[in-house]
Structure formats: structure tokens, C-alpha cells
């Protein structure tokens, strides 16, 4: 459900009109609009935003680990529309037990490396990704460094 105070923002209203089930929440803070999207709908919502709402640039994809809370991972997408001179943040939550989400590489090719980075550092898997390999850490590395239960110093446990 889209919170009532966000209905005045054209993008938020458009996404709700496109797929009301996909929006699970949102907020407007520090002049930045955030929409929370159901993880299973992320790819279709992104496609709508790119082709219908002119968010032709994907600025970055990253994740936040909320360990030990569940759902553990928050996937964060920052979109940029040059025509509208607007930015938009999308968030999708996925569980820590089986962190899988659909890739958005089909919408923006630039998602390729960003999703590889999230896979490498958080251990989130992306379905339909063309080349899901580690990108920053060595191929034979064990563990995912940016997870909150990964130690910052000392030997790996």
C-alpha cells in the first residue's frame, strides 16, 4: 500500500496505478523519495519506471544487511531521470535464509556489475543474471565481507 502522503508525487502515484500490489510502503525524507517494492515484482516495476516514467539511468544498486532482523537484506536501487531531473530510491526486502531476487540487468545493462558486487560482498543471488561471478574479492574467497556477521579484523572464522 502506498502511504497517503505520497500520492501527490507523480512517480509514486504512477507506480501504484501500474501495479498496486507491488508497492508495500514508502517515505519522503530529506527531499528524497523512497518506494518499497515487493521483491518478486522488482524487475517489472523497474521496467515500467524506465520505459514509461523515463528513469533511463540506474545510478547504483547496493544492499543493507539488517542482521539479525528478518527480512535480513534490503536491496537498494537508485534511479535517475535526466528528463525529469529527478531521483528515486527503490527498496526491496529479502530473507536471510535464501537471499534471491530477480536481476534488473534486462532493464539496465549497468546493473550487471552492481549486482555482481552485491553478490560478492553480501551473498545475495540474482536470477537471470548473465554473468554472476565475484567481482572485487578473489574467486576462491569464502564468506561475504559486508555482511554484519563478518568480522572486521582478525582471522576469518
Amino acid at each position: 500500500m502506498l502511504p497517503d502522503n505520497l500520492k501527490e508525487y507523480p512517480v509514486a502515484a504512477a507506480v501504484e496505478a501500474f501495479d498496486a500490489d507491488a508497492v508495500t510502503g514508502g517515505k519522503f525524507e530529506f527531499s528524497e523519495l523512497t518506494l518499497e517494492i515487493l521483491a518478486s515484482k522488482i524487475s517489472s516495476v523497474c521496467g515500467f519506471l524506465k520505459y514509461d516514467q523515463k528513469f533511463i539511468r540506474l545510478s547504483t544498486v547496493t544492499a543493507v544487511d539488517r542482521f539479525p532482523a528478518e527480512p535480513r537484506f534490503e536491496l537498494v536501487y537508485h534511479l535517475h531521470s535526466i528528463d525529469r531531473n529527478e531521483r528515486l530510491r527503490l527498496k526491496a526486502r529479502i530473507s536471510g535464509a535464501d537471499p534471491v531476487i530477480e536481476s534488473v540487468t534486462g532493464v539496465w545493462r549497468s546493473a550487471n556489475w552492481y549486482e555482481r558486487e552485491v553478490f560478492d560482498l553480501f551473498g545475495v543471488r540474482f536470477t537471470n543474471h548473465p554473468d554472476l561471478r565475484r567481482i572485487l574479492m578473489p574467486d576462491d574467497w569464502e564468506g561475504h565481507p559486508l555482511r554484519k556477521d563478518y568480522p572486521i579484523t582478525g582471522t576469518r572464522v
Partner: peptide, 20 residues
């Protein structure tokens, strides 16, 4: 508490800091 994404124009292009 909160989150921001601040974008600036670095010599190389779009530099953004996302802080939670």
C-alpha cells in the same frame, strides 16, 4: 536515524554517497 543519497559532480562524473 535516516538515509540519504548525496550526489555531486566529481572530476570523473557522478559521485554519490549513500549513508544509512
Amino acid at each position: 536515524q535516516g538515509e540519504v543519497f548525496q550526489v555531486i559532480e566529481s572530476p570523473r562524473g557522478e559521485l554519490g554517497y549513500y549513508i544509512v
